[in-house]
């Protein structure tokens, strides 16, 4: 398996696809951060301890912030690293040659998955490190240990999330014989999750709890709660919630309605959560993403193992 891993890794690293995505992702991230840093002074309130994390979370109109960029790029990178993993081997005629070598069949798919994951991790860590380094250079405020921990957790969550997309893309690459098909299906699914899941959630919530001008705060809260719950079918939203909570310690609840109520009604102050509590907060999200990735990978694994190599 190591040979396959090595070969796939080398293939990815030398591919134009990797180079283009990496450069694009880095440029987008650097750009987002350079613009964000200009706004950082305004965003840093006197009560804020987490200055360094602000580099990643501040948006500078009209460009969205770093997190937005990374949450777009990770699925694209994941899909790009996986959509043709198996079917390209098949169409190029390499698969049967490969399978006639003395290797276990699962090591092909394992090696490919791990290589894609490694490349993805490489990219995620590099981008975060470059952005962090740049931010450090510009704002001159070093991260404290908790911020470093949060960034590490952020990187890990991102890698897991990317792993989900890789697994999904590999699943499609096993299922569809043509690389173009599997890419389109993966991208379509991503767009569905990314754009439409929230819209559907909103529609469902509005159908269940219609809101109008006279609606009480509770009604609003219930509506938002339903929206949240439904939109969690989308891994994009799960990931979004997780990273926002990780990088914004001030977020004490993933439920904006609860936050709203606690601030407006209870007059609760927004005190930052400590790392452990933030982790606890996003734990369900992370576990869900891991589970989704595992399911996708397991299905593609089984399909690949069971797939008959037919005569022509």
């Amino acid at each position: 398996m190591y040979a396959i891993f090595r070969k796939e890794l080398a293939d990815h690293l030398e591919s134009k696809r990797f180079a283009i995505l990496f450069i694009l992702a880095t440029l987008a991230a650097v750009f987002a951060v350079l613009l964000a840093v200009q706004n950082i002074r305004g965003a840093v309130t006197s009560s804020s301890e987490f200055v360094f994390l602000k580099i990643f979370t501040i948006s500078s109109e009209p460009l969205p912030f770093f997190l937005f960029f990374i949450s777009i790029f990770i699925p694209i990178i994941g899909i790009a690293l996986g959509f043709d993993a198996v079917n390209s081997e098949r169409t190029s005629g390499n698969l049967s040659r490969l399978l006639s070598q003395p290797i276990y069949r699962d090591s092909i798919i394992n090696g490919k998955f791990l290589a894609s994951l490694a490349v993805l991790s490489f990219m995620v860590v590099s981008v975060i490190a470059i952005v962090g380094g740049l931010g450090l250079r510009i704002i001159g405020v070093p991260p404290n240990s908790e911020e470093v921990l949060r960034l590490v957790a952020f990187a890990l969550t991102s890698i897991i999330y990317g792993g989900f997309w890789v697994a999904l893309a590999i699943l499609f690459s096993v299922s569809f014989d043509r690389a173009a098909t599997s890419m389109l299906v993966s991208l379509a699914l991503w767009i569905f999750f990314f754009l439409f899941a929230s819209m559907i959630a909103e529609a469902i919530a509005n159908a269940r709890v219609p809101l109008d001008q006279n609606s009480s705060l509770e009604m609003f809260a219930r509506n938002i709660e339903i929206q949240r719950m439904v939109s969690r079918i989308s891994p994009c939203n799960l990931y979004g919630e997780a990273i926002v909570a990780l990088l914004t310690p001030e977020i004490a609840s993933l439920n904006p309605a609860l936050m709203m109520i606690s601030v407006t009604v209870a007059g609760k102050m927004l005190t930052p959560l400590n790392f452990g509590q933030s982790l606890l907060l996003i734990w369900p999200q992370v576990v869900s993403i891991v589970a989704l990735a595992a399911i996708c990978f397991a299905i593609s694994y089984i399909r690949f193992i069971k797939q008959e190599i037919r005569a022509i």
């Binding site: 490190a129 380094g133 450090l136 250079r137 510009i138 405020v141």
Partner: peptide
């Protein structure tokens, strides 16, 4: 930037 952190930032990059 304090030179230390500036250099560390550059060093990371």
């Amino acid at each position: 930037t304090s030179t230390k952190w500036g250099w560390i930032g550059a060093g990371i990059i």
